[in-house]
């Protein structure tokens, strides 16, 4: 599904990623853990194609295609989804309008028929229910005045609706209390499937109690320094990142 080779990237001229190698197969869930400033969020933005994140070396192949040659919306239409650590507020655009525009844009880009209002509405209701996303929330401007939990649930709803092949969850646990975390984790778990890969980026082991990964990587100083099974999370919880820090 995804193959990252010797990836180097700079932000404002400063090198943050210094040779990341990572292979993610369809159907698997990979966790990337690491101390603050290790490059976790940079990796997620590079994969999504954010402006200002410049790849200086290396390659990223997604489903056999050169991901880095695609622009932001092409990547999304091709099935790459980034759940934001800090979802952006969009005043004046209701969540419903946004979801419909996004879903139909992706369907159109893939040469599929756009959904009309009744079919779209039915789909949104169906996907919203398990995530406790109310009609009221759907009518409000996207993320504007949403609580931390509402923002994250809105992100998972977008993921459920857009059905990506590769989902990257950037610190999805940040700002969530335990109940909200459970709802979000259940939402993510329900999307696990043999055709879908996930990269879960987190600082804490806590999230991985609820979203149990197949593989855990430790990112430090812009490189993956250790890879192991799910038991690695427990070890990191006990020892901390001291071993990997500067």
């Amino acid at each position: 599904m995804l193959e990252i080779k010797n990836l180097h990237a700079t932000v404002d001229g400063k090198e943050i990623l210094k040779g990341v190698d990572l292979t993610v197969e369809a159907g698997s869930v990979h966790a990337i853990m690491g101390p603050n400033g290790s490059g976790k969020s940079t990796l997620s933005y590079v994969l999504a194609g954010r402006e200002g994140y410049e790849v200086t070396k290396g390659s990223v192949t997604y489903k056999g295609r050169d991901l880095l040659a695609m622009n932001v919306d092409e990547r999304a239409a091709a099935g790459v989804f980034l759940a934001f650590q800090y979802p952006i507020e969009i005043p004046g655009v209701t969540t419903m309008t946004f979801l419909k525009t996004a879903l139909n844009a992706q369907r159109k880009a893939r040469g599929e028929e756009e959904l009309d209002a009744p079919r779209f509405l039915k789909l949104v209701r169906e996907k919203s229910k398990p995530l406790n996303v109310s009609d009221d929330m759907l009518k409000r401007a996207l993320n504007v005045g949403f609580s931390g939990g509402e923002k994250k649930r809105a992100e998972i709803l977008q993921m459920a609706l857009l059905e990506p092949s590769l989902a990257i969850l950037d610190e999805t646990d940040s700002g969530l209390d335990i109940d909200a975390l459970k709802v979000v984790a259940e939402g993510v778990n329900s999307l696990r499937s043999p055709d879908r890969a996930m990269i879960v980026i987190t600082h804490y082991q806590r999230l991985l109690d609820y979203i149990v990964p197949d593989v855990i990587h430790v990112l430090s100083k812009g490189k993956i320094v250790r890879t192991g099974g799910k038991e690695l999370a427990g070890e990191l919880e006990r020892t901390g990142y001291a071993e990997f820090a500067a």
């Binding site: 999504a48 919306d73 999304a76 507020e89 969009i90 946004f98 880009a109």
Partner: peptide, 16 residues
Amino acid sequence: RDAIFFLRARGIDEHT
């Protein structure tokens, strides 16, 4: 610009 990136990251082209 962040809003434009967010929308594009959901598959909405820059124009739209």
